[in-house]
């Protein structure tokens, strides 16, 4: 995942560039496990260089019109096609204004040159624990749309990512888009990240809060602390309770730092991550609720 490659060259494969989704699916049907989808290439090509994957067939989906969608429909939400890059999201007005957590995550992801090429769907499909795309999507309750020749299915991003580089996708399937539900006007969302220079987060956090509507809703999603992004369900409950919001935030932050399973790895120890969970939670929630 992050070993660096001893190799300069890529293994042999056959390159395909289907023009329609159907052609792409037929290729997948034919080659199955031996094929990989190429969009931005930022993940796949790096993985191939490290020989973490060596597909015999690479299917470039950049010319498929359906996958280039980036649409917002009032009342329905946002549809992000599989070839939509971080840069395209960054300059999309609705993303910037309405989907703040996603926007902030996108802005903080990697660097501006990589963002010109990297896609959000690719980011989700790589399922690397330390990246910024998945937490906000999970906070919004986004779903991935998956197609094969004979069916379409939708899976919440939270379930789609099963673990490090492990996703709920069959070899004959392709992720066509991500659907992010509509966000009510009174809802707020945001994203924070703690990293030491490097693009990879030690901890990141996406929060979605809808506290003034009929149905109160809180989602706190933490990335980089465990094999896959996780929600702090107990902390969320605290925020849904009645009481002085300031005290609730502190309690929720403490709760989150205790309730979650947290790992140690090359980037940070478990202890430091738990501490950061506390700090980031207080920081983000006061920003969102206090407007400060």
């Amino acid at each position: 995942m992050s070993f660096g490659s001893p190799y300069f060259t890529l293994p042999d494969f056959t390159y395909h560039k289907p023009r329609t989704l159907r052609d792409a699916l037929e290729l997948l049907e034919k080659y199955g496990d031996d094929a990989k989808i190429l969009a931005g290439g930022v993940g796949l090509i790096a993985f191939m260089k490290e020989r973490l994957v060596s597909p015999s067939h690479v299917i470039d989906v950049k010319e498929i019109p359906e996958l280039k969608r980036l649409e917002y429909r009032k009342g329905e939400g946002l549809i992000i096609g599989a070839t939509i890059t971080f840069s395209e999201l960054e300059s999309h007005q609705v993303v910037r204004e309405k989907y703040r957590a996603l926007y902030q995550a996108v802005k903080l992801a990697s660097d501006s040159i990589i963002r010109n090429r990297a896609t959000l769907v690719g980011n989700v499909c790589e399922a690397i624990p330390w990246v910024d795309g998945p937490p906000p999507l999970i906070a919004y309750g986004a779903e991935v749309e998956i197609r094969s020749l004979d069916r379409v299915r939708r899976v919440p991003v939270a379930d789609f990512i099963k673990g490090p580089v492990e996703i709920d996708l069959e070899p004959r399937e392709i992720v066509t888009s991500i659907h992010v539900p509509e966000v009510p006007d009174e809802a707020k969302s945001g994203f924070v990240k703690f990293n030491i220079g490097s693009e990879f987060a030690l901890v990141n956090l996406a929060a979605y809060l809808s506290l003034n509507g009929k149905k109160k809703d809180v989602r706190l999603v933490y990335g980089a602390i465990s094999p896959k992004p996780v929600r702090a369900l107990e902390a969320e409950k605290i925020l849904l309770a009645e009481g002085d919001m300031r005290t609730l935030i502190t309690s929720a932050a403490l709760k989150a730092s205790e309730e979650l399973e947290v790992i140690s790895d090359v980037l940070a120890s478990e202890d430091f991550r738990r501490h950061l969970i506390k700090v980031l939670t207080v920081k983000l929630l006061t920003e969102l609720i206090g407007g400060g």
């Binding site: 506290l211 003034n212 002085d244 919001m245 300031r246 005290t247 935030i249 502190t250 932050a253 700090v279 207080v282 920081k283 006061t286 609720i289 206090g290 407007g291 400060g292």
Partner: peptide, 12 residues
Amino acid sequence: FIESKKLVEVRA
């Protein structure tokens, strides 16, 4: 840190 955040006006 926590106290200062508490001082922020809470709108909720």
